[in-house]
Computed example of a mutant assay.
Amino acid sequence: MLQETNSSQKPYIVIATLSSIVIGFLVWLIYFKTPAAASGEWVASLPALNALLNSVCFVFLVSGYFLIKMNKKAAHIMCMLLATISSFLFVVSYILYHHFHGDTKFLATGTIRYVYFSILISHIVLSIPLVPLVLSTLWNAFKKNYSAHKKFARITFPIWIYVSITGVLIFLILNNFNL
């Protein structure tokens, strides 16, 4: 029994380790790394791409939620895979942007500054546990451990929805008030 428990915990140890590495890398990338020189204006278009990918992820997440409620498992799986792929592509684009551009400063003043930072801080705080939650939810689905998958999904889904939609809001606020 002890061996079975240890082997069932190995994926979570791997997920926790991988998540820690990813999160540590992102902190270093955003706050400590000097931006690289970029050639071309493609870097300036990455925040819009990031917002688009967050929007796409949101649509797939909501669609997948309703599909599983209608017991359409194959369509649910497809939507969740597409949400995961769009999130992965977001992370790649996000890394590229911060590699070449660095952190974006918010210069607006007044009430919008408080609104922006409230959204941004909650977005960042919730995106940290999202990495291991998504990986754990997907792992349990892949292993057909639907009981654990459902338990993780009940926590993962609202956080993933929130992080996706606030990512779009952050982009919109930056583009409309950070002039």
Rank of each mutant, 00 (worst) to 15 (best):
I23N: 10
W160E: 01
F90V: 14
S8C: 06
H98K: 13
I128Y: 13
L26Y: 12
C57V: 13
I155R: 01
T104C: 09
T5R: 15
K143D: 14
T104F: 07
A36Q: 13
L49G: 13
I21A: 13
Y146R: 04
K150H: 02
A44L: 13
L46V: 11
F171W: 10
A38C: 03
V125L: 15
A44M: 12
S93D: 07
L138N: 02
I121A: 13
L81D: 15
N175T: 10
A148N: 05
I170Y: 08
H76L: 03
Y12I: 04
I30V: 15
K144P: 06
T5F: 15
Y114K: 09
T156G: 00
T166W: 01
V163G: 00
W160G: 03
V22D: 11
E4C: 10
S8T: 04
M70E: 14
I77M: 06
I124F: 06
R154V: 00
A48L: 05
Y97T: 02
I77N: 02
L29N: 11
L81C: 10
F32E: 08
I170M: 10
L46Q: 07
L52A: 14
N71Q: 09
S122K: 06
I112K: 02
K33M: 14
Q9E: 08
S93K: 05
I77T: 03
Y31E: 02
S63G: 15
I95D: 01
S8Q: 10
P35F: 09
A37K: 14
S127L: 13
K10G: 01
Y116E: 07
Y97C: 03
V115A: 14
F32N: 12
S118G: 11
N71H: 08
N145K: 07
V27H: 05
F177G: 11
L130W: 11
D103N: 08
E4A: 15
I23D: 06
A51T: 03
